[in-house]
Design a protein around this nucleic acid. Structure first.
Lengths: 354, 354
DNA sequence: CTGTTAGCGCCTTCAA
DNA sequence: TTGAAGGCGCTAACAG
């Protein structure tokens, strides 16, 4: 005899309860859902059996019968490389969005199914996404996680709300931040307050709509000033290590070629860049200013000048909208830009030391 | 005519594909799962139809047929009060655990269903937990989220792994940190390095096994020194505001009654306490030292001396164990204490300023 | 190689 | 107030 594990009882079903209580499954079902039309005596008897057996209805079976799973999915992109020790990282964009979603869900009957898609494995992503889609009634999709054509296909089957993604997907609601305005404010601050002339860009992955908008907006904004130029662009992918690599690139240039300021497509990369800069003996902002985008939690603690996107709010709004649409599929499409705000701290050169 | 929403097609089933392709549902199923025994021509035809219709199998139906949902649940406790603006908070214990779980799941077929239970609403918690349990094959439970008897009942139906909870629940595997050792190290440091004599305790909720152990360990450790005493205990509930309230309590006492150090059952409360202390014009650690427990992300940034629990690792291990047990239910029970480590920073009085 | 069929556990009319 | 029965979409024998 092997040391058998715990006494995990065989699944207990409606039938078990019905048999034990000497009633039909319909009656048990009625009792389970507090429906009327059951004689008090019978009800009590059934209740006792339920209690004794520890019965509760199986979710999958309910989903089938009701044609509704009461689960929504949250698809996020995991931009960390497989080797990263994530122990070190703080709260990221996706985490904040999740908070918002949880908030929106806190008093509802819906559950949240979470899945991270790894951008270094686009092949596996496809299967994974479909797998999630199969288990939910609707889905929240963050960023450029899902390749456009797949997205279209999914949207044909279940409602989808895009978060910080493309706002012109015709078959999905969308909530994004005003990236354009935020970027413009950043550049304007850098130029007029700190006399920045030479800007170096650490861009996000071109697959991410957000990254694309910020990229375009940066160049537009810079073009608005005569003597300001973008002296270089590093193609990052939103992970902190991108910032470090970009700094290496900068440092490999002749000194005269160095920028006055580094504008990053998100805070993670900005923080990575600052770390690398300081490790190389350069001072931020004295030698080079660095600014980010997002305003993640640690940005405040580390004095990073950045643009705040209402991440939590985006999650909350997107989730509420999804819930609405699930109630009423005939709703017209809704896309919305949430306002961003320039958060001036020290890394741009304002205030005292970093 | 109303402005009907998106063209959400009626659910597409195996039957639709079969009909369209002129084969039986069995064949479609075989193709869907890349099973052999289908003539290449037939396979291709089916594949085309699947592609054209955008078909993918319904998760609920699969769960039923396979008797397996391929979903695990993560039950966490949300200690924030309803009014809290969570925008401000950093990474919490539960978030770190989730990271570990996601890590453990990254290459598996399993999905993660998340649910937060609000400790201010024990009534609703019951339904909510059962609802989750109904939708998963196994569950990870953080902290004293689940009242013991309910837990026992759940464990009879599906495998459960406790994280940072009681390690003596007979029907569940468990992973906890060495709270006792960590607390002892903290006290010893405070006393021998900083000559602390009067310790004030901000305890966690007694429902949380972790909090209980830390509480007991603190008193034990203090009892080991002749001239050291615990001058007061504030009953907190792990939220930052608990720390603030505790400080109010302390400040309401005569000056002579003030402690040398405040020992908190977690970092959140410690951070809350520090904030309140400084707001009241007291300096940490000069006037009063403060130490926490957990080593959350912002603890490092703010110089909090604390005890590190390997939160991510706990999530990872717990999840792996659950997966194992799901494979082989006959496994013997396994409970494990993961090592903690004293992290000395400035809030205890070491180093320079805070 | 392909099709038929019996469940999986529950909800929900419809009859009694 | 109760029970019988069909169906939700899919998987996996089992037959052909």
């Amino acid at each position: 005899m092997q040391p058998s594990g715990f006494p995990v009882s065989q699944a207990i079903t409606l039938y078990d309860v019905a048999r034990e209580a000497g009633v039909s499954i319909a009656t048990v079902s009625r009792v389970t859902h507090n429906q009327g039309g059951v004689r008090p005596g019978t009800r009590q008897r059934v209740l006792d059996v339920i209690e004794a057996l520890g019965y509760f209805p199986d979710g999958a079976a309910q989903s089938m019968a009701r044609q509704r799973k009461e689960v929504i999915g949250l698809l996020g992109m995991d931009s960390r490389s497989p080797e990263t020790d994530l122990e070190e990282e703080g709260m990221l964009f996706g985490d904040m969005v999740q908070r918002g979603v949880e908030w929106a869900l806190r008093d509802s009957e819906w559950s949240l199914l979470i899945s991270l898609v790894h951008n270094y494995d686009p092949a596996g992503a496809f299967r994974r996404i479909q797998k999630i889609a199969a288990k939910v009634d609707g889905m929240l999709v963050i960023e450029g996680t899902v390749v456009a054509n797949l997205l279209e296909r999914l949207a044909a089957r279940i409602p989808i709300v895009l978060i910080a993604g493309s706002t012109d997907e015709p078959h999905a609601d969308a909530f994004s931040a005003d990236n354009r305005g935020g970027t413009a404010a950043l550049v304007q601050h850098l130029v007029s307050e700190h006399g920045v002339r030479r800007v170096y860009e650490i861009a996000g992955p071109p697959e991410a709509p957000d990254a694309r908008v910020r990229h375009a907006a940066l160049h537009e904004a810079v073009a608005g000033y005569d003597s300001v130029t973008v002296t270089g662009t590093f193609q990052g992918w939103f992970a902190a290590v991108s910032g470090q690599l970009a700094v290496q690139e900068i440092l490999s240039r002749p000194r005269a070629d160095r920028p006055d300021a580094i504008v990053c497509a998100n805070d993670q990369m900005a923080l990575g860049a600052i770390g690398a800069l300081e490790a190389a003996g350069l001072r931020v902002p004295a030698d080079i200013a660095v600014v980010g985008f997002d305003d993640v939690y640690s940005a405040a603690l580390l004095g990073l000048t950045t643009v705040r996107q209402p991440m939590r709010l985006m999650g909350e709004r997107a989730c509420s909208r999804l819930l609405q649409r699930l109630e009423d599929p005939s709703l017209a499409r809704h896309a919305e830009y949430l306002p961003t705000r320039l958060i001036v701290r020290q890394s741009c050169g304002c205030g005292s030391r970093l």
